[in-house]
Design a protein around this nucleic acid. Sequence first.
DNA 1: TGCACGATGAAC
DNA 2: TTCATCGTGCAC
Length: 183
Amino acid sequence: MRKLPRAFYDRDTIAVARDLLGKHLVHVCGGAARIGRIVEVEAYLGPHDLAAHSAKGLTPRTQVMFGPPGHAYVYLIYGMYWCMNVVTQREGQASAVLLRALEPVKNIDEHTRGPGLLCRAMRIDKRLNGHDLLSRDFYIADAPPHEPLTIVKRPRVGVDYAGHWAKRLLRFYIKGNPFVSKR
DNA sequence: TGCACGATGAAC
DNA sequence: TTCATCGTGCAC
């Protein structure tokens, strides 16, 4: 399947988030290609979005978010889980889409509901922070044709501290998909 | 140099 | 509702 081009990521973050649903995340490591179908995401709209890490400004951790689109922003949460985002829009916009759940396709187990488990199943950790998603071993690709998706919009998870930004409907998932995270 | 806390997940 | 577990950002 066709690898998504840089131009796919260099667009409005909400559009990228919605369009990522149904696409295939691919990680080739240890001789195996691990593949999962993206079924749940969240959009983080830049430094003015108080729920986004980039709202803290340009720091060692957030510098990938401030970089060019089409790169992976991977960070540690609660001291034990990795979370993966794809950087969107042009360099400096500091926007990204968090991948929250996958439907297993190949070489991964069934524990892919939620951003932490998703990364564990796909063998994603800090080594992939800043990795170019147009690379040979880590990328997102078009998936085989499927029925038109019904997309559900909800508030993002775990961002109650972000004031009115916590109320925005920036979590998107495929309606009825059994691998969407609970909550 | 210290410390409070988090875009989580599982157990109780 | 509690807890595991640690890098990050900011206070001191």
